[in-house]
Design a protein around this nucleic acid. Sequence first.
DNA 1: CTCCAGGTGAGTC
DNA 2: GACTCACATGGA
Length: 296
Amino acid sequence: MILVSEKNSALISVEATLKSGQVFHWDPLPDGSWIGLISDHLARVSEKNQRLVIDQGDPEILNRYFALDHPLEQIYAAFPKDSLSQEALTLCNGLRILRQPRWECLATFITSSMKQVAHIRAMSIAIRNRIGTPVPGSPHPAYPSFERLARSDEKTLLECGLGYRAENLLKTARLLTEGSIDLEALQKRSTSELRTALMTLPGVGVKVANCVLLFAYERLDAVPIDVWIHRILLAMRNGREGTPTQLANYARRRLGPYAGYVQQYLFHRARTDKKKARPSALKSADPKNSYTQSRA
DNA sequence: CTCCAGGTGAGTC
DNA sequence: GACTCACATGGA
């Protein structure tokens, strides 16, 4: 057992990080630890005193994956001062934006459209069980490479519950196999060039592209705007609607230099809120939603 | 039963 | 650019 983050005291909440809807490839074990695959690298981790404990796996790979070098103090200092952002910060303290393998992240988010987090995970596990490559000790096979997935067919993916997303995932896997786009080489491009390139792939619109930018390319200012974040932005604007472009600009200004981080805290907070912050709850004149009055 | 979910792409103005 | 609509699936 290795206490990785002891030296630099890197704060982390493993549970918030792994359950925040940025990754779908970890399973909780009865003893409180988590087992998962990073590509085909098997790892088991747990948490002690808000520090990462590596029970199994390569520390170098895991350090990088869990982004223990992200300057959380600096990121927290840059959080907006409104009460909703500050509440999310308190409730999700230690949540880190991962550095995920590009393809896995891209593939899972192509399947994410109009699906709940639990469904996305279910589809991913179905794909892994069906056409993934087995890894000894792992509860599920590794996610198939794009070359491997490209050799599959639409019928198989439909049987994994993908519905209309099957065609998009298959086409994207085939484009990558043909070499039309090199996911690794794209790392060197500017954020906007990278976003444009990703959006040429079937099933990748601006929201999925921003997820991949944030979760796999370390563009910490990228803000995916899904239905939850859309609702929150509206509340921050006192209900004032806007075009997608206007809301994106607003989010960037309002959430600051680490807008992607703030967004993930807001997203996780909203989804795990015991009060079940449904659309109606956010729009209501409930005095608890006092953040609607605050300004950064 | 209806409603919703980490949206996208095609058609249209 | 922005708006409208269809698109499969499964849980609440």
